[in-house]
Computed example of a mutant assay.
Amino acid sequence: MASKRVLVTGGAGFIGSHLCERLLDEGHDVLCMDNLFTGQRRNIEHLLGHERFEFERHDVNEPFVVEADRIFHLACPASPVHYQRNPVRTVRTCVQGTMHALEAAREVGARLFIASTSEVYGDPAVHPQTEDYWGHVNPIGVRACYDEGKRCAEALAISYATQYGVQVRIARIFNTYGPRMHENDGRVVSNFIVQALRGEPLTLYGDGRQTRSFCYVDDLVEAAVRFMEADTDATPMNLGNPQESTIERIARAIKDLSNSRSETVLRPLPQDDPTRRCPDISRAGELLGWEPKTGLEEGLLRTIEDFARRLSLPEGALDTHDELEGMPHAGV
């Protein structure tokens, strides 16, 4: 796309920081907005001196006005460890934060990309999940603050599109991994890598045969950029990798790739944790000409190397063991 002014909310987060890089590489002016609740300044530190990059510390739960042609709205805690820590704040961010993003887009006529999630499908009765599946979600469970918050965010986006003509792109993002994942976010890949590098037991919840599909972050960002610029109103759209893997297989791969001697231990499956999760990406393939390119082993190796660099910091600098212990691995 031609050079534009682009706002990325949650731009100091895992996916957001990679997206900011990509947009700068394409010649755009990028405003990164983040309250650093789960985002990290170190994710964007290398961008702070760039002439086309700005950082604004702001909470999307407070209104904002910005001059922008495009808005990527990614701001929200996305892992169970973070979104369950303060469920009221999570619901507010999903609902109120999204409304503020929609109002900002409406004010300046910007196109808005909404980062929704595969969690809207809950523990699915349909497999793989297609965009026309309405989901199987517990509205009062421990994950409801995020699951139902994102479902409401989708409803808000569609309502603004219908009533006010705001151009919206709703992306249902499935499990994504790669460099800059938060060390203590409790997700499958980050949990296993931290534990493997430290020689700690790899904690599998349930029997390890539940499945997820894992998309490398560069592939996800490619899909997001294409979706934003696509001349289509086909929304929502699944974005993820349709290659399904068991949790046990992921643990074994990470152990082998990191040359770890860690053993695996089984823990009870957390409440409402889905047993299968895999996207049907036919719509993205047809309309965006997109499919993931990065193989699981290649992506895991890059991610392990990134974690190994960070975990080589002085003792205690990344002390995540206490927070990781007993936390379920799930999330986008």
Rank of each mutant, 00 (worst) to 15 (best):
M33D: 03
M33I: 03
D34E: 12
L36F: 14
L36I: 05
L36G: 12
F37T: 14
T38C: 09
G39F: 02
Q40Y: 02
R42S: 08
N43I: 06
E45C: 00
E45W: 00
L47F: 02
L47H: 01
H50N: 14
H50T: 07
E51R: 14
R52S: 11
F53H: 10
E54F: 01
E54V: 04
F55V: 07
F55P: 06
H58W: 11
H58M: 03
D59G: 09
V60F: 10
V60I: 15
V60T: 12
N61S: 05
N61K: 03
E62R: 12
E62S: 13
P63Q: 06
F64P: 01
F64K: 02
F64C: 02
V65S: 15
A68I: 00
A68P: 05
A68Y: 00
D69M: 02
H73P: 08
H73G: 08
C76K: 05
P77W: 03
P77H: 00
P77C: 02
A78G: 07
A78W: 09
S79T: 13
P80N: 06
V81G: 03
H82Y: 15
Y83C: 08
Y83Q: 04
R85F: 11
N86D: 15
R89P: 00
R89G: 05
T90E: 01
V91M: 12
V91R: 12
R92P: 00
T93Q: 11
T93A: 10
C94V: 09
C94I: 03
C94E: 11
C94M: 11
V95P: 05
V95Q: 05
Q96K: 13
T98Y: 00
T98E: 01
T98P: 01
T98G: 01
M99V: 11
M99F: 06
A101V: 09
A101K: 06
A101F: 04
L102G: 04
E103R: 13
E103N: 14
A105I: 14
R106F: 04
R106K: 14
E107W: 01
G109H: 09
G109R: 05
A110Y: 03
A110R: 00
R111D: 13
L112Q: 10
L112I: 14
I114V: 14
I114E: 02
A115K: 05
A115C: 11
S118N: 10
S118K: 08
E119C: 06
E119D: 13
V120Y: 01
P124L: 00
P124H: 02
P124E: 04
P124M: 05
A125K: 15
A125E: 15
V126F: 04
H127G: 00
Q129P: 12
Q129L: 05
Q129A: 12
E131Q: 11
E131H: 13
D132R: 07
D132W: 00
D132N: 09
G135R: 02
H136V: 12
H136P: 07
N138S: 15
N138G: 06
P139V: 09
I140H: 12
I140W: 13
I140R: 15
I140S: 15
V142S: 10
R143W: 08
A144I: 05
C145T: 02
C145G: 10
D147P: 03
G149I: 06
G149W: 02
G149A: 09
K150H: 09
R151W: 04
R151F: 02
C152D: 01
C152A: 15
C152N: 08
